[in-house]
Each structure stands twice: as structure tokens, then as C-alpha cells.
Simulated scan of single mutants.
Amino acid sequence: MNEAFNRYIPASDEAKRWGLTLTDLGYTQIPAGSAYPPGEHPDSYAFNVSTGRVLTEYQVIYITRGEGSFWSQVSGEQAIKAGSLFLLFPGVRHRYQPNPQTGWDEHWIGFIGDHAERLMNEFFNPQEPVIQVGMNSDLRALFATICDLTEHEGFGFRRIIAAKAIEILARVQTLSQGESLRSPHNEKMIRQTCCLLNDALRQKFDFNAHATENGMSYTSFRRLFKQHTGLSPNQYLLELRIRKAQSLLTNTTLSVQRISEETGFESSFYFSRFFKQRMGLSPLNYRKAHR
């Protein structure tokens, strides 16, 4: 790998329609004792480490060697080390620099767009811009792939690197969760629970007993499950039942009573009421609309 690579990409109308457009990207190896920031970037991206700068885009910067510091007007001063990743938000003054004794290696992407704004506002916080993701090989490979695709500018590369940028955000958001959440034991337990729920649509599922069998309280299990899936255990099971009901209504001639039994609802009345609340149509009207 060369010591540095960067590219600044004009945002085309086609790229903007994807909702997330990469505007700049690259990596830089800053040796110990080197001046920072290097003078190889456009004036609109350059900054003084004393006064900082304000951008009109989002950036994700991943440090894979060395250490240093980061400051923003929202978060204040924070230490940076190898494995740290920090986020820059539009309109927020910031500055950062490596420790002169160590230097650092930085990988970054900058992006704009409606979808980018939704993701950043929903899953990240300007008050907590520094995330300890560790030395993650998958994350580092994504940054490298974006640079490689951009360097060769193959057909459609702008759309592909936009998708890779979304994957970076997804991995960062996942890695920002606590160590206990990311532990192999807990991941395996949640996967097994999801499999059990898929097989338990016709009968009640005792979540309290299941939590106890896995050595935790229901409260801890519920919190862990929701962090992994985005839904509480009961909501997850109800979603599975509704999806099964949709399939049976569309692809079979089973009665509503029979479908309510196949999907584990207490009665056809409760099933019909819940289905209409969730889907906006009664089961029979849903069947008519999708046959």
C-alpha cells in the first residue's frame, strides 16, 4: 500500500438519487514527527489544528496505527488510539491530530445525501463521535475496497462505493455496542432463540423459562434480544406470526380460523383484530387484495 491515496468526487445527479454519495475518501500514513495535516488536500478540506474547521458533509475516520486527539465543539477533547473511529458532522467545528511521537494511519470517507442524513441522525450522536471499534479486519477491508474501486473507476463504481459506505456505517453501529452484546456466547444464544421462535409459531413460548435456561433474568434477556434484533422477543414472535399469516392468506385457501390456529393466536377474533391493526386490512380483505 502506498503511503497516501485520496480522491475528491463531484456529486452527479444520478449519484444523488441513491441518497448517499461519497464526496471524498482515502488513507494517509503519518509518520512520527511529520507535519499535520498534510498539505495535499483541497482548501475546503484543509484545517488548522488550533482553530479547527467546519464541513458541510459527514465523515468517518478510522485510525489503525498510532494515537492522538480529537476535539469538537459538541463533544470536547477526547483521546484517540489505534482502533478508534470518529465521526464528523456537518456544521460542527472540530479538529484532530496525531501525537507527534507516534504519528498515525488514518482511513476516511466523506459523504452527503438524504439517506446519509437519516442514518447518521438515527444511529449516531454528535455528542459521542469517538467509537472504539478495535482493529477490525472487515472494517479495514471495506475502506481499502472503496479506495481500490475508486482508483480504478470501473463502470458503476460510484453506486458500489455508496453501498460499501452504508456497510461501513452498519458495521460501526454494530461494533459500537457493548462487549457483552457482541460476545460469541450471546450471539449464538440469540440466533438459537430466533430459530426456536420460527419453530414455535403454533404454541406459546415461555420467554421467562427460556431466559432462566440461559442463565439470565428475563429483563436482561429482553434487553439483549432487542439490541440484536431491534424488536422485543414478543414483538419478534408476533412479526413471525403475521408474516406466516400473510403467506397462508395469499397462497392457500385455509379459513381464517385455521390460519389463526396455524399461527398461534388465541382465537380467530384476536387474530383478525391484531392483523387489521398491523396490516390495515382484515384477513379476508388482505386475501382479496393479494390473490
Score class of each variant (00 low, 15 high):
250 T>I: 13
248 L>I: 10
271 F>A: 04
286 Y>G: 07
226 K>P: 08
193 T>C: 15
55 L>A: 11
112 I>Q: 14
109 I>G: 02
36 Y>P: 07
212 T>G: 05
64 T>G: 14
291 R>H: 15
97 Q>D: 14
223 R>A: 08
270 Y>C: 06
166 I>N: 01
196 L>P: 08
254 L>S: 04
259 I>N: 08
6 N>D: 12
208 N>Q: 11
27 Y>N: 06
65 R>E: 12
133 V>K: 10
230 G>E: 10
96 Y>F: 14
282 S>Q: 05
137 S>K: 14
198 N>D: 11
22 L>G: 01
194 C>W: 01
213 E>K: 05
284 L>H: 05
73 Q>H: 10
232 S>P: 04
177 Q>S: 09
63 I>E: 05
269 F>Y: 12
181 L>N: 15
239 E>L: 14
23 T>H: 00
80 I>C: 05
249 L>C: 14
103 G>D: 03
208 N>E: 13
66 G>K: 01
93 R>H: 06
196 L>S: 12
43 D>Q: 05
10 P>T: 11
265 F>A: 03
237 L>P: 12
110 G>A: 11
87 L>W: 05
102 T>Y: 12
239 E>C: 10
39 G>N: 10
31 P>S: 10
85 L>F: 09
160 I>C: 00
249 L>Q: 07
217 S>E: 03
239 E>R: 15
